[in-house]
Design a protein around this nucleic acid. Structure first.
Length: 416
DNA sequence: AACTAGGCT
DNA sequence: GTATAAGCCTAGTTG
């Protein structure tokens, strides 16, 4: 699949195995560096969120006229759907009954006054139990959080645990507030640089897709361009909702979406979803052919591979079991893209780690799939921002420009 | 340990 | 007729 790119693109002479080996010491370095947390901010937030959780809990139990454990999905499901008989028309089921997942409850949010409160309750208790309570306990003697990175064996992505610093909240006012507790020390500043739509750029490049390549080469808004093609409109006539649909379809393509999956994600009928997918592949012939060829090759060879040669074996790609086979087909499409994005980021980490040695007190402190965060002296800010962008953008030379967005701030929310 | 849910890219 | 969008990590309940 990568032959054409390997011929035309200027790629560093390095294999995936070498990338994996060379990034390891960088990972140990980032773990050792750690990131500074403002403990007093966390404690304030914890009290605030704790109060809101308690208030919501009392109101919900009063509204439902029951005494149950709200953290028990099975007890909640029983009350909502067996006792109160709330509508279950198109709700997903779990093994034991109707699902109470946020997406399902949202569908029936007007059927009972407790439902919106339950959604708020869930949001706040997640933040409290996963971040506000555990993080302070993990702060080391140097006042910083130190995670542990691993390279995932199936995709090559880097994963983080104890604590996971790759899922720091960002959505909602409390999510953002938590992100604000990740701070730079005095006289220092955080620089966050992330690849703009790297996976779409990779699939456009490897698929040699004409329209998408054009959009990226001309630095256009790729989702709006896709919307124009799918909905047969001029770019300047595309509505916000159409752009949102196109964005969902673009992501869906990377994951091997089906009409059903798209209809669920967009809350539209399967027929409508089917139409959009048809229009999408009609407009993006290159991507359509790439997906078909990738699955064909995977069947023939029993594995797929990334740009730098990392292989993932797909044991069920020719299985009789349809669900298992189709799952492997989705992996066949996604793994080369996700894995290549991981390799590009790891190359940047290797190169950046070397360059940062020229700046005292500047160091990598986070790596989050398509983003790197560096802590540096305020006096070095401008130079560091330019350095990071250059290293990340120029590590691999694809037939499509790779774009990096760099921001800075005194905390992680500001730098995002 | 399995299940359900939900945080992030 | 059946399941249905990739990859991770963490927490609480249940039996």
């Amino acid at each position: 699949m990568w032959q054409a790119i390997k011929k035309t693109a200027k790629l560093p002479k390095i294999t995936d195995t070498e990338i994996r080996t060379q990034v390891e010491p960088v990972l140990r370095e980032i773990e050792k560096n750690g990131i500074l947390i403002d403990l007093s901010k966390i404690e304030l937030l914890n009290k605030d969120v704790g109060k809101r959780i308690e208030k919501l809990r009392k109101e919900i139990l009063f509204d439902l006229r029951v005494k149950i454990n709200l953290d028990s999905p099975s007890q909640l499901s029983d009350v909502l759907f067996n006792k109160l008989k709330l509508p279950t028309a198109d709700l997903k089921k779990t093994q034991s009954g109707f699902s109470t997942a946020a997406g399902e409850l949202y569908k029936i949010k007007n059927s009972h006054p407790a439902i919106p409160k339950i959604l708020k309750y869930r949001e706040f208790s997640k933040l409290k139990s996963t971040y506000l309570l555990p993080l302070p306990k993990l702060i080391a003697a140097d006042g910083r959080l130190h995670t542990h990175y691993t390279q995932d064996a199936r995709t090559g992505r880097i994963t983080s645990r104890d604590p996971n610093l790759q899922n720091i909240p960002i959505k909602g006012s409390y999510g953002e507030a938590i992100r604000k507790t990740f701070v730079a020390p005095k006289d220092k500043i955080l620089v966050a640089a992330d690849y703009s739509q790297i996976e779409l750029r990779i699939i456009a490049a490897v698929a040699g897709d004409r329209h998408m390549t054009e959009a990226f080469v001309n630095n256009r808004d790729v989702h709006t361009e896709t919307a124009a093609l799918v909905f047969h409109k001029e770019v300047n006539q595309v509505t916000a909702s159409e752009r949102r649909f196109a964005k969902t379809i673009n992501f869906g393509v990377l994951y091997g979406m089906t009409p059903f999956g798209l209809s669920q994600a967009l809350n539209i009928s399967q027929e409508e979803a089917n139409r959009y997918i048809f229009e999408y592949f009609h407009a993006h012939q290159g991507i359509k052919e790439y997906i078909e060829e990738t699955i064909f090759q995977a069947r023939k060879r029993g594995f797929v591979e990334t740009l730098f040669g990392f292989k993932r074996v797909l044991e069920n790609i020719t299985a009789d079991n349809r669900a298992a086979r189709e799952a492997d087909e989705r992996m066949a499409v996604n793994t080369p893209i996700q894995g290549t994005a991981a390799e590009i980021l790891k190359l940047a980490m290797i190169n950046l780690s070397k360059e940062l040695k020229n700046f005292c007190e500047s160091r990598l402190i986070l790596t989050i799939h398509d983003e790197l965060v560096v802590e540096c002296k305020k006096s070095d800010l401008k130079e560091i921002m330019e350095l990071i962008a250059r290293i990340m953008e120029e590590g691999v030379n694809l037939p499509i420009p790779i774009k990096v967005e760099v921001k800075s701030g005194n905390n992680l929310a500001e730098a995002k």
